[in-house]
Every structure is written in structure tokens, then in C-alpha cells.
Design a protein around this nucleic acid. Structure first.
Lengths: 258, 258
DNA sequence: CGGTCTCTTGACCTCTGTCAAGTAGAGTGG
DNA sequence: CCACTCTACTTGACAGAGGTCAAGAGACCG
């Protein structure tokens, strides 16, 4: 395992409550929660589930019976067109709740799968609902989480609809870096991307071959580095220039109300 | 005004409460609301605001102070890239709430503008919050509304990322037809699109010239018709074939729980 | 009836896709 | 430690969908 997961703690000393720390940190990054709110989350019963890359967490058309939160690894939402084209429509990183949607809507409209080996904390929907319903702060945190994911989807629409391959790739890398940085407890300066070029292609509406060519441009410009096959950020400011990146759409610590 | 707005009622006999009917109908299309819930909405104070095409309802970076609902006309969410590329990231039709997001998040991450001449019902955020907070059914309806918009954004990602121009355009036309049909009280068989080719281009990540070429293909196939400049559906089943369209992602009448 | 905004069309260009062959790591078994 | 295999990456030649440019034609509007 590369350093990417170091700060996610495989530490056997961690208690069950500790393991949810990353989830709480994620929620706190956009919503204020009282110490009691946090404790209530930590005290919620859950089971740990581990999946291999590309295993399904939820399938299009299904009804979810549980509420999974990503503790380790990456996951993605994916849809396919009739002619087999695959599009990844969301990328989830450690700390992200994977399926708040199923708390409120009957059937899944996309496939939810593990991208890397993942570890999930799986709550029962009933438990989660009972927790959130009477606590406005938590209900709001869930809502804000949903809204931020929607905002990211809109930025992706702009990215895929209007930016060329180079800017598109740079933009995605910037976003991942910012998001990982946000939930990491330490600096993630040189973190390594666990994405294959095929996955990058499916994220960006491009082909693997063109991703390869585009990475090389970023690499030659020094914006990105590679150790063997692993992609690493070389020069963030260069990357941002390529990307036309602004983090406004990530809504970091910009909650209204309380 | 073409038949498109006929069923939206400019009828002067309509009371203030009546005018909100289309909003309630939209909410009912995905969430059950008691008669009392509905009355509470109708009794909420609001002001009417009319805007011309492309006028801003909300600007990126701003904080909304009101909660607008679209009564007549179309509106859109839009983002631009550094090199001036414009992408429409959401299309709103009569009955749609335009900005539930601002109830929960500090700053707007996109521009919200009128596409045609529009009529808005504008609620005060405070009023709306006071209405929704103690009513779980209404809170849930707001949430489901937000989730369905997010689902549409994901389908658009697939559409723009993986479908060619022909399927892409056909898919958008199918979606608009289904959505308009859903809130219309009568059959909207031959309804006319109020979109220019440039707007279609900005919706689909294409150029106006290519939209023009693509419309002609659909027209020659009989999937679409044109009277002067106005686009009309010619043959829905053909259009669906071009589009690889399934309406699952619109989540029509598929709510979980109460 | 001139002005303006769309739409239309053709010629040409280029970004990205396709195909195909080859290379390099990572893992496995001997 | 060395084959062997599998998967991912790399590269080049070529193709094609969609973009760009530019000029002209239709609508619509005062």
C-alpha cells in the first residue's frame, strides 16, 4: 500500500469509534457539528466490509438496504450507454458517505463500485435515519454533503463539456488533490493516484490512449511526475494553470445558518 | 406565446394560491404530500418577479436571499471556463424550484439565468425554512427534489461524456419532453422547444453549427419536425431509439418510505 | 424596410478516437 | 532467481467526429 492510505490508519489499536473519525472529519469540513452530534455518530453500530476493485456496492435499479461510508480506498459511481461506453459520474474518497441518496429515493440510478480495494463502514438505514431525523445539525450536514456532490457534478459537466483533454485531466487532478488534502490529517504533498489510465479515461470522457498522450504533456511540463506507473503531483501551480482551477465549487467550510 | 405555456395559465382569474399549483404538482410527482402540506405551501407569502431572457436570477459567488420557484418559462444553470466556453449544467422547467441549494449552502457555485421570459414566485428564505423545518414530509420533498436534479446531472455526464452528437441531442429532447409532460395537466404531444441552436449547443457541449447539422439528421429521419424555427417532436419512439433513452434517472413517482 | 439575430451551408482543420503491435512491470510458480 | 503470464502502459499510423471560419439567407422587430 502506498502512502495514500497511510493516514487512513490500518492501526489495530484503533477502536471502532476511532475508525469513523475520517467520516466525521469529512462532515466537519463543511458542516459544524457539536461534540454530542459527533459522539452520536461514533456510537452508531456498523459493520466493516471489504471489497476488491470493481466489486459492486450498489447496482442501478436496486434498492439499498444499508448506508455505506468509505473508510479506506476509492470508489466511483458509473453509468453506461447502450453502445457500451462507460462514464464515471462521481469519484468518492475516504471519509465520503457513498449513498445518502438511498435514504430518500427508491431505486439507484447508477452503479456504485470499488475503485481500489476498499473498506466500508456499513450502517443500517434504520439506525442512520433514527440518528439523523431528530437532529437538525446532522440532517443539515447530510444535505450539505449531497449538495456538494451535486456541485462537483456540475463542475464535471463544465469540465467534460467545454475543456480540452489537457485542461480536463489537470482539473481532475487538482480536484482530487484538494479533496484528499481536505480530509488528510497530515500534508499529502506527494500523494500517489491509484487510478489507471483507463479509469482516468472513463472519468473524463476520453480514451485511454489519449489519456496517455495527455499525461505525457503534463509530465514534460513538470506539472506531474511518475514513479514507475504511479502518478504524482509535480507542480501544483502549473497544474492549476493548465486546469483553470478554482475550488469555489468544493464549498469548503462555507456553510450558512448556524 | 406558443402552446408551451398555455397550460401554465396566464389566466387572470387565478388566485395567488392557484399559481403555485404547478409547483405543488411538481413536488407531488415525486413526493407524497398531505392536503395540509399542500395548503401550507399555498398559503406561503411570495412575490411575483418577471425576467427577460438571460437575466440573472443568481450569480456565481453570491449569497441568495430568496427562494425562487419557476412558474412560467425556462431557466438554466450555467458555468464558464477560462477560455470563455459556456456550459449549461441544468435546465429548469415550469414548476421547478430554482434554488433549494441556497437554503443550506453559503455561496452559489454557478449562474442561474432566465432562458425564456420567465415568471418566478419568490419566497423569503426565512418563510420557506420556517415552513419546511417542522414538516418532515416537506423536508423530504425538498431533499428528493435536490436528489433528482443530481441524478439528472449524472445522466448528463454520461450523455456529454460518452454519447455522440446525434444521441446526445435526441436524449436531451427526450428528457425535456418527459419532464414537461410530467408537470403538464393536459397532453403536450406537439410542444415546441423554446431553445435556440446556440443554447442547445451550450447544453450539450457542442457548437451551434454542429447542432444545426445534427438537427437536420433527426429531421430527415422524421424524429423531429420544424415549423419555421420552432422545434417539435415528430416521432417519440424514433427519438428514443436515437437517444438510448430510459427514464429511470428521472425518478418519477418512486419515493421510499412514507 | 433597414437592422439584428438566428439559422444554414460549404470548405477546411484539428482534436481525439481507432487499431494494432510492442514494451514494461507486478505477481506467480517453479 | 528465473521463466511465464497478465495487465497496464506506450507508440505510431490513420480515420473521423466535431470545430472553425466565413458568407449568405431567413426571421423577426421596430
Amino acid at each position: 500500500m502506498p502512502m495514500l492510505v497511510r493516514w487512513m490508519g490500518d492501526d489495530p489499536v484503533m477502536t471502532r469509534q476511532d475508525r469513523l473519525g475520517i467520516f466525521i472529519r469529512k462532515l466537519l469540513s463543511h458542516s459544524p457539528l457539536s461534540a454530542e452530534d459527533q459522539r452520536e455518530i461514533r456510537d452508531l453500530p456498523y459493520t466493516i466490509r471489504r471489497l476488491e476493485p470493481n466489486e459492486h456496492i450498489l447496482r442501478e435499479g436496486e434498492k439499498a438496504k444499508v448506508c455505506p461510508v468509505l473508510l479506506q480506498g476509492y470508489a466511483y459511481r458509473q453509468k453506461t450507454s447502450a453502445d457500451g461506453g462507460r462514464q464515471i459520474v462521481a469519484l468518492k474518497i475516504p471519509g465520503d458517505a457513498l449513498d445518502f441518496q438511498s435514504l430518500y429515493v427508491e431505486t439507484a440510478d447508477h452503479n456504485l463500485q470499488a475503485l481500489t480495494p476498499v473498506e466500508l463502514a456499513v450502517f443500517a438505514i434504520k439506525d442512520f435515519e433514527r440518528l439523523v431525523a431528530p437532529r437538525p445539525n446532522l440532517a443539515r450536514a447530510v444535505l450539505v454533503d449531497i449538495l456538494i456532490e451535486a456541485s462537483i457534478a456540475r463542475e464535471w459537466l463544465l469540465n467534460i463539456g467545454r475543456r480540452n483533454a489537457l485542461a480536463r485531466l489537470a482539473h481532475l487532478l487538482c480536484e482530487i488533490f484538494y479533496r484528499v488534502q481536505q480530509i488528510a490529517q497530515e500534508d499529502v504533498g506527494g500523494f500517489e493516484l491509484p487510478l489507471t489510465q483507463e479509469q482516468l479515461a472513463d472519468l473524463l470522457g476520453l480514451t485511454p490512449v489519449h489519456i496517455n498522450r495527455t499525461i505525457k504533456i503534463l509530465e514534460n511540463a513538470g506539472a506531474v511526475r511518475r514513479i514507475s506507473r504511479r502518478l504524482t503531483i509535480g507542480d501544483m501551480s502549473k497544474l492549476r494553470q493548465f486546469a483553470d482551477f478554482s475550488d469555489l465549487y468544493l464549498h469548503r467550510n462555507t456553510v450558512s445558518g448556524i
